Amino acid sequence: MADEVATTQLAEIILKRIRSRGDITFASFMESALYEPDLGYYTSPGRKVGAEGDFYTSMNVHSAFGRLISREIGRFWELLDRPESFTVAEAGAGGGQLAQDILDAIAEENPNLYAALTYRLIEKEPSLQEAQAARLAQHADRLAWSSPQELSDGALRFTGCIISNELFDAMPVHLVEMAEDGLKEVFVSADANGFREKLLPPSTPELAAYLQKFEVRLMPGQRAEINLAAPAWITRAAATLERGFVLTIDYGYLAEELYTPQRRNGTLLCYHKHSTNEDPYQMVGEQDITTHINFSSLIEAGKEADLVAVWYGEQYRFLLGVGLMEELMQLVAQAKDEHESLKHRLAIKKLMMPEGGMGDTFKVLIQAKGVANPQLLCMRKWGMGL
């Protein structure tokens, strides 16, 4: 790892920074690689998602994904007693594809909710607002925008729900490794050839406390990622909600499964042009860097902020509960020919395929605030009513 000479403008900037200011944590490196203004992976121009990008998310596979989420959002609204003002805040809204599918479905299927709705797009990259506004022009009077800072500084307060699809896996993480003499943190240094890793004492006692909290015992030589930003985000999201729900879709596990000795090198992966590698120090700013998330940390942080975890499970279980099979039957019935019907069936299969596919790689967590024992659509027996 890190044997190549830096080949990107951003890599040169980070190397220069390290040489002048000293070694940085891997979390700081990842923050720059993904979010450096104008040069980071998520803050630079170009398509990141879909066939022309570097990876797919569920929303790119079929519009049914957003349509099905919209039905659970409708359930949230009902459980909150159909308030006249209801906000859906999408964190990490990207180009607005998921927002479009959700808004189109609500406008068509639930006009009373649509009339009460404000759809608030929250995105770190400000230049995306123009693209979102253009894509969502037909829903212009339902839209609002906020920066992540506004979500976190207490400026927003609303009743409704906060949703995210693959938000947490792109948050910067600290890398730790268990050495013979105790826990070490991975720092990023620089030599004449480029980036170099160093194992040094942890930058903050929070890292050891995190492992202790989730009863994680790393084996000698085992690496793990620690996402301190994710629980902090959940805490801020909870403060934003007067009453409502937080719906998180991402890939990851509960702590006991995430930090097993079998994952000796952790879960960090890089994506470029639909291929993966484990070297975050190449193509800096031009490839995605992701990790699986610890859903236990989201659940625990939520508990401490009055969010109750009401449902957690694989994506395919969630989709089946909210009506995937009914949606598929309707799509097939409306298809104009066998080719279109097959296209729908293959896309839906990709969304729910377990054993390494999107269906069980992705998990869904729903947390509630101020709603006692909510009966959600995803809790239904498959194909049956509440």
Results as ranks from 00 to 15, higher is better:
P37G: 09
L98Y: 05
A140R: 14
Q9D: 14
G96Q: 02
V310I: 14
G313Y: 00
H344C: 03
L269M: 14
L156N: 13
P202Y: 08
D104S: 14
F65H: 01
E84K: 15
M353R: 08
A347F: 07
K349V: 00
R67S: 09
A190W: 08
L167Q: 04
K336W: 07
S296L: 04
N193V: 10
V173L: 10
M358H: 03
E108A: 14
G22V: 05
V322E: 12
S32Q: 13
E130C: 07
I249R: 10
I69W: 04
A232W: 00
M219R: 09
Y41V: 08
I293K: 00
W233P: 01
W77A: 06
H139K: 00
L351C: 12
A230G: 06
L156I: 03
G357M: 04
L200Q: 10
I106V: 15
Y35R: 11
F65L: 10
S85V: 05
A230L: 00
M325H: 11
Y41R: 02
E215W: 12
L377E: 04
L377A: 03
A209T: 11
G266D: 14
I13A: 10
D104W: 09
D250M: 06
E355D: 15
F26S: 14
T361G: 01
A105G: 10
A91L: 15
V61E: 01
T361I: 07
R236P: 04
